[in-house]
Simulated assay, not measured.
Amino acid sequence: MSPTNANDTPSHPAFFLLVGIPGLERVQGWIAIPLCAMYVFAALGNSAILYIIKTETRLQEPMYLFLAMLAATDLALSTSTMPKMLAAFWLGSRAIDFHACLAQMFFIHTFSSIESGVLMAMALDRYVAICCPLRHSAILSLPAVVTLGSLILLRGVLLICPFSFLAGRLPYCHRRFIAHSYCEHMAVVKLTCGNSRANVVYGLFVAFVVVGSDVSIIATSYAMILRTVLKLPSHEARLKAFGTCGSHICVILSFYIPALFTFLTHRFGHGVPHHVHIMVAILYLLVPPTLNPIVYGVKTKMIRDRIVKKWKLVKSSTCLAKNPEAEAPG
């Protein structure tokens, strides 16, 4: 049953209406084209990485298992928002059921938390591999990787569940228009006509716990990696390590900077143009899933070699299917 107010009428509307990008409604259809292209690339790239890691037994190592977790999280994170967003931009399908909105809110923030945790785990894996190479297999054994991944998933679910509960119990006085492209927590809470202090405080708490702890561990890990790399005697080895770590850090920054910008703008950035805020929030869900297959997948030699091998096999099979006589002896 829907919660009720003192007059025994529903305290929330049956559905919300997603505004999209306030101020840019006329060009949303054009903006959706590159967004759709990024989503398709992210879906194909992360699916390819998952397929390669699953089918290649030699890739059942901590680094690749964490990469598979990241690819699965990216798929879930982008898919939880983009189909509905594209439908709103191109088809005008802006309505989203109240409970569907709460579910989307849960998935967005849960998978964002999981992605942060996986990036932290990958930084730890790189730290152990570079700074303690002889103990890497002992420290990050398969049971340890599974346990760490399970804890990251559990943390995300347990911390984010109260978001939907707290938002669901607030009265909205039939306010329908969400000034956003998806059901982000604070964008929904801003529609309430009741006391939302608990939502604001809990949101700050979750951000501090998740981002604060993960960024601290990532920063410490890469500081230790940097110190170890600078001690390498070979100039080429140092350059290679810097190149790898540099690309990884760029991906990490592409996730955390837009996330922090969006989080802080909701609470303190009243002077930031609303369309800028919404565009950054959209890219926050799309840029990391698009970049990760390139940086963590294509630039990883073993995965790159297997992708090329699979592509050649597919191409060869296609050619044989078109020209079956090519197999026959002359």
Rank of each mutant, 00 (worst) to 15 (best):
244 T>H: 08
261 F>L: 04
31 I>K: 03
210 V>R: 06
29 G>V: 13
265 T>R: 00
167 A>E: 14
70 L>M: 13
175 R>V: 14
20 G>F: 11
224 M>W: 08
275 H>W: 05
35 L>V: 13
170 L>M: 15
66 F>W: 09
138 A>Y: 15
171 P>W: 10
224 M>V: 08
199 N>I: 03
207 A>S: 01
122 M>E: 04
277 H>A: 00
3 P>E: 03
293 P>S: 11
162 P>A: 14
30 W>A: 14
95 A>P: 05
102 L>E: 07
129 A>S: 07
43 A>W: 13
143 P>M: 07
20 G>Q: 08
309 K>F: 11
291 L>Y: 05
207 A>H: 02
18 L>N: 10
290 T>V: 14
160 I>L: 15
221 S>N: 03
256 Y>D: 01
268 F>Y: 14
106 F>T: 02
202 Y>V: 02
46 N>Y: 02
174 H>P: 12
212 G>V: 01
273 P>D: 08
131 C>G: 12
207 A>E: 01
152 I>C: 06
12 H>Y: 09
274 H>Q: 05
58 R>C: 12
123 A>P: 03
226 L>C: 11
28 Q>I: 12
44 L>G: 06
112 S>T: 05
233 P>I: 03
22 P>Y: 00
323 N>D: 13
176 R>E: 14
27 V>W: 13
9 T>H: 08
40 V>P: 10
306 R>V: 00
274 H>G: 02
311 W>Q: 02
305 D>C: 05
186 M>G: 05
299 K>R: 14
87 A>Y: 00
120 M>P: 05
238 R>W: 04
81 T>G: 01
143 P>T: 10
285 L>Q: 03
47 S>P: 11
48 A>P: 00
63 M>C: 09
95 A>W: 02
316 S>F: 07
